[in-house]
């Protein structure tokens, strides 16, 4: 089986499982008391944010590996990961405001995490614009790696500075020092969704990587 068809299969399985997440979230997970049905978007929003962050993290790691090992496969992977990350960022940036309007009363606010994810999106866009503006492959790979690494290092600084400035986003409810403050049934739905979104990431990146490997 070629790499491209492996990617397509993984994506197909992930999409079926995603449909399962929709069903589980809507029909078999209780509605949140205060937020009502709006809270359901949480099962898509948070995992897509996770996949977007994962994409950036792996762009950064692949960029470091590329600069050390000069293996163009890492560059191809970073490029694929950045493209897929852009899509997940867009999902995150559209589902977020849809939830925020009824709950916060505003589409957007300049909170730490919102600003961070918006900048993540702009970094992805900038990364790809730079790639498209350099025609020589070796140069393109090195330039992209430099921006990828800088972008990864930048994100904690943005988070910290905006966090010190002001924050409104719901506090972390899963990854925090004490036990997750989420009823078990909701937590399971969320964790399943994390798994599905990670699988989607793998499927998309595998397909995109395969396209990049085709002889031109």
């Amino acid at each position: 089986m070629t790499q491209g068809s492996v990617g397509r299969w993984i994506t197909a399985v992930a999409l079926v499982l995603l449909a399962g997440i929709y069903v589980r979230a809507l029909a078999f997970t209780p509605t949140e008391l205060l937020q009502g049905p709006a809270q359901k978007i949480f099962y898509l929003h948070v995992p897509s944010a996770w996949s977007a962050m994962l994409s950036m993290g792996l762009v950064g790691v692949a960029s470091i590996l590329f600069l050390f090992l000069k293996d163009e496969r890492y560059d191809r992977f970073a490029s694929a990961s950045a493209e897929v990350g852009t899509v997940f960022s867009l999902v995150m940036l559209t589902t977020g405001p849809l939830w925020a309007k009824p709950i916060w009363g505003t589409w957007w606010t300049w909170d730490a995490r919102l600003t961070l994810t918006l900048m993540l999106f702009f970094l992805f866009i900038g990364y790809q614009l730079l790639r498209s503006a350099v025609s020589e492959p070796g140069l393109r790979a090195r330039y992209a790696a430099v921006v990828g690494i800088c972008g990864l290092v930048l994100l904690p600084f943005i988070h910290l500075s905006v966090y010190l400035f002001r924050t409104l986003h719901p506090r972390p409810i899963v990854l925090k020092p004490s036990a997750p403050s989420l009823p078990p049934v909701m937590l399971v739905t969320l964790l399943l969704s994390f798994g599905v979104f990670t699988l989607l990431y793998v499927g998309f990146v595998t397909q995109r990587y395969a396209i990049g490997s085709e002889p031109r």
Partner: peptide, 10 residues
């Protein structure tokens, strides 16, 4: 500017 302005934020 497109590449650099995110780095200006902090």
């Amino acid at each position: 500017p497109v590449l650099l302005l995110p780095f200006l934020l902090p």
